[in-house]
Amino acid sequence: MAVIEIQNLTYTYPATSHPALREVSLTVEAGEFVAIIGPNGAGKSTLCYTLAGFIPHFFKGELQGEVRVAGQDIRRVRLEDWVLKVGLVFQNPFNQISGAKFTVYEEIAFGLENIGVPREEMKRRVEEVMALTGIEDLADRSPYALSGGQQQRVALASILVMQPEVLVLDEPTSQLDPIGTREVFQVIRRLAHQGVTIIMAEHKVEWIAEYADRVIALAEGRVIGTGTPADVLTDPRLPDYGIGISRYTAVARRAAGEGLWPAERRLPVTLDEAEAGFRAVEEAHAHLH
């Protein structure tokens, strides 16, 4: 079942002349993990804001085409209802702390207070997501006195606790150090295994190759490729658009140029595929001699 359907979406921010998104169409199925790749300024964040309902409701501007979540038109649904269906986590962990609360536990409960969840249920849900995101030991700390990775997991927990049908993540680790990045990705991996519908804008292609069901490549506001990670991430045009490719793909492409990659084999995007490919070459060579 399609949770989100976008057809021919063209969107222009107020006070700008060029559209940030042009004729974008995509469908997200329930339980899917969709990754969005693209260079800076390609429209990844704009697409994330659209999926999360902030375009057009918060940003205003001009929206053409159709955006539907669970069959409802985005223009007909109020933002306060849309955010219950689609949760949004973005880059800067610090800006996602509400400021309204003095401890992590209260911070996570903030959203539930706002939508009127009864106290007992609130506590149960808060404790569940704290366990899921591995931040139980931070419960009584000030949300401002945390590392970036911890803050981002608090931000993630604060959205997950509202039980959205879809989770939109806009480069959730781009402002974190390697430790923080690993902590956050561990949580996202856990969510993907649980079958949560996830849409994530991300630069780290190796990670995408391993976990995404589908990849959408954006450049200059247009969709330039969509399909499985193996198809999209090995598209030879990616470097021309300024999109990074997996180091396994890069090595294999170099090898293919030297005739050291099986001609019939698709270029690899993960370590396992690269290893399999090179083993095949090795065996073929052993055969020859």
Binding site: E80, V83, L88, F90, Q96, E113, N114, G116, V126
Partner: peptide, 22 residues
């Protein structure tokens, strides 16, 4: 961004609010 973050958490919800602590 901070405005987006609190709206994403139902800050503008028209439902009656509840409270974690009594």
């Amino acid at each position: 961004e901070r405005a987006i973050a609190i709206e994403a958490r139902g800050f503008r919800s028209s439902r009656p609010k509840t409270s974690l602590v009594e």
